[in-house]
C-alpha cells in the first residue's frame, strides 16, 4: 500500500479524463441530457418540428382526461401484476430442475436459454404464427377436441398471450440468476432438513426459499420494471394500434405512438415518459422494501 503514490505520479493529471472522455460524453449526451430535456419538455407544448412554449402542468392535466392514458396505465400495471408472480416462481422451479447434474444437463440448460437469445421480434412473430386461428396451438387444441380459440382478435386473450410470451422469453434468463443463487445454499441445510424428515416441498419452503429470498426480490424488481415498460410483445401480437379499439395499448406504446414521427406531440409524450420513470422507480423501491420487511 505504501507503494501506491508512485502509481499516481506516473500519469499526467489530464490522462484520467482522457480515459473517461468518450464514456462521459456519450453518457451525458444520450442519457443524462435527454433525461433533463424530457422533464423540461413535459412542461411545454413542444412538437417534433417546434420547440414549444411553457405550458405549466397542462400536459399532466390533459393526461388525467385522456382515456388512452388510463388504458395504457391499466394495461402496463396489469402486466406487472400478472407477469411478475410467474417470472419469480417458474424460473426458480426450472433452476431446481436443472441444478442437479444428470447426463446432458448442460444441453438442457442451453436449450432453456435459447428464447432469451432470440430477438423479441423473432419470437413475437413465431408466436403470432403459433397462435393463429389455424396455427399450431389451435391445431393441438383441435386434436383434443377443443377450440378454436381466437387468441389474436380478443382484447383480453391478446393481452394474456403477450404476457405468456414475456414469461416464456424470460424463463432462461432468470433461471441462470437463480442457479447462481442456489449454488450458494449450503447443502448441509438440506441434509439436516432431510434428516428431520422434511419432504421435498417442505424443504423447498423452509430451506430454499428463505435462503434465496434476496435473489427472489432481485428477480421481482428486475421483472416488474421490465413488465411495466412492455412494448414489443404487445406491439407484435396486437399490432401498432394496440389491438381491437387500441384497448391493448401499453404506456410505452402510447409514448411511441404520440411522440414520434413528424407530427409527434413531444411535450405530451415527455409528460407520459416522466410518469413512466416515476412509476418504474416506485416499483423498484416497493419490491426491495417488501424484501426487507420479509426479513424482519
Amino acid at each position: 500500500m505504501a507503494r501506491r503514490p508512485s502509481a499516481t505520479r506516473t500519469h499526467a493529471a489530464s490522462s484520467p479524463w482522457l480515459f473517461l472522455l468518450p464514456g462521459l460524453v456519450v453518457t451525458a449526451a444520450f442519457s443524462l441530457y435527454p433525461f433533463v430535456s424530457t422533464v423540461w419538455k413535459s412542461f411545454t407544448d413542444a412538437r417534433t418540428l417546434s420547440a414549444g412554449t411553457w405550458v405549466g402542468l397542462q400536459n399532466f392535466t390533459d393526461m388525467v382526461h385522456d382515456d388512452q392514458f388510463w388504458t395504457g396505465l391499466r394495461n402496463s400495471l396489469l402486466y406487472v401484476v400478472c407477469v411478475v408472480p410467474f417470472t419469480v416462481m417458474l424460473p426458480l422451479l426450472l433452476a431446481m430442475l436443472v441444478r442437479r447434474y444428470v447426463p446432458g444437463i448442460s444441453f438442457f440448460r442451453a436449450a432453456f436459454y435459447t428464447p432469451v437469445v432470440a430477438s423479441v421480434v423473432v419470437v413475437g412473430l413465431i408466436w403470432v404464427w403459433m397462435l393463429d386461428d389455424r396455427g399450431l396451438v389451435n391445431g393441438m387444441l383441435h386434436a383434443v377436441g377443443a377450440g378454436p380459440v381466437h387468441f389474436l382478435s380478443n382484447q383480453w386473450l391478446l393481452l394474456f398471450s403477450a404476457m405468456a410470451l414475456t414469461v416464456w422469453k424470460g424463463l432462461g434468463y432468470y433461471m441462470i440468476i437463480y442457479l447462481a443463487a442456489l449454488a450458494n445454499v449450503p447443502n448441509e441445510l438440506h441434509e439436516a432438513a432431510q434428516m428431520d424428515g422434511a419432504g421435498a416441498i417442505r424443504r423447498f419452503t423452509t430451506v430454499t426459499v428463505p435462503a434465496i429470498r434476496g435473489t427472489m426480490a432481485l428477480v421481482g424488481a428486475l421483472s416488474s420494471v421490465a413488465a411495466f415498460k412492455v412494448f414489443s410483445e404487445i406491439y407484435l401480437l396486437a399490432g401498432p394500434s394496440g389491438g381491437p379499439g387500441g384497448e391493448d395499448t401499453s404506456l410505452v406504446m402510447l409514448v411511441q405512438r404520440t411522440g414520434t414521427g413528424l407530427t409527434g406531440r413531444t411535450g405530451y409524450a415527455s409528460a407520459i415518459s416522466v410518469v413512466i420513470f416515476v412509476i418504474t422507480l416506485l416499483l423498484m423501491l416497493l419490491v426491495l422494501r417488501l424484501d426487507r420487511k420479509d426479513k424482519e
Binding site: 433525461f35 430535456s37 417534433t48 411522440g259 415518459s273
Partner: peptide, 25 residues
C-alpha cells in the same frame, strides 16, 4: 464520474427515447 454512470444506468431507455429522437433530429 462514477456517480454519473450509475445515474445513467437508472434512467430507463423507454422514458428518454422521445428526447433522444429529438436530439437525433
Amino acid at each position: 464520474a462514477g456517480v454519473a454512470f450509475v445515474m445513467a444506468m437508472l434512467v430507463p431507455l423507454e422514458s428518454i427515447m422521445i428526447a433522444q429522437f429529438t436530439t437525433m433530429r
